[in-house]
């Protein structure tokens, strides 16, 4: 995706938000939205997002399904931990090096991670592609290692959904 493509993509996205805000589709809303989007993009230029991949609908659906499941599990976990009497939960900070070191992959993985079981991003090392994650309710090293594998599995689902063919091969090969 070139710089021009990502600008067009942002323009259409912002226009869609504008139409959703009004709640009804009309040509006036469409034109008004395009105008507002253009002003926003000129006033606040964004760095281009390098998107070298392609969308794989089945993998994307699988990612969304897992994400919803993980979100529910995570919420129940935290809620149960909050209401459980007893000692305060221990936690751990672990560094996980992602296999695909791109802006898009780091961002998506970090966002998804913060919402799924027991994890919170603390620090990102951009040059090495390492995410430092705070994990709630960890009591030993074995649990931390299990969590590390969960992070890499999440990355695999994301890259499978939107990654380029070479990235797709990278994550799916190192898995086995």
């Amino acid at each position: 995706m070139t710089r021009r493509d990502s600008t067009i993509f942002a323009l259409l996205g912002l226009t869609l938000v504008w139409i959703l805000l009004w709640g009804t589709f009309s040509w006036a809303n469409l034109l008004g939205g395009l105008g507002v989007a253009a002003v926003v993009l000129i006033a606040f230029p964004l760095p281009p997002v390098v998107f070298g991949g392609r969308l794989r609908p089945v993998a994307l659906a699988r990612f969304v399904g897992w994400f919803a499941y993980d979100l529910v599990v995570a919420s129940v976990q935290v809620a149960a931990l909050a209401c459980r009497p007893g000692p305060q939960p221990h936690s751990a900070i672990i560094g996980v090096r992602l296999r695909v070191n791109t802006d898009l992959n780091l961002t998506l993985t970090a966002e998804a991670l913060s919402l799924v079981p027991g994890s919170l991003i603390l620090e990102v090392d951009r040059s090495l592609g390492v995410l430092y994650v705070h994990v709630l309710d960890v009591s030993d090293r074995a649990q931390a290692d299990r969590f590390r594998r969960d992070v890499l599995a999440l990355e695999r689902r994301i890259v499978s959904a939107v990654g380029s063919p070479s990235e797709f091969q990278l994550v799916n090969r190192s898995e086995s």
Partner: peptide, 29 residues
């Protein structure tokens, strides 16, 4: 109920890092 649990977690968790877990997951769900 999830929002209530998030609120309880905010007051009961020991430090700010743990509390941020409560502010993201149960609260968003």
């Amino acid at each position: 109920a999830f929002s209530l649990a998030a609120g309880i977690a905010l007051t009961r968790f020991p430090d700010i890092l743990s509390r941020m877990h409560a502010a993201t997951k149960p609260q968003v769900l």
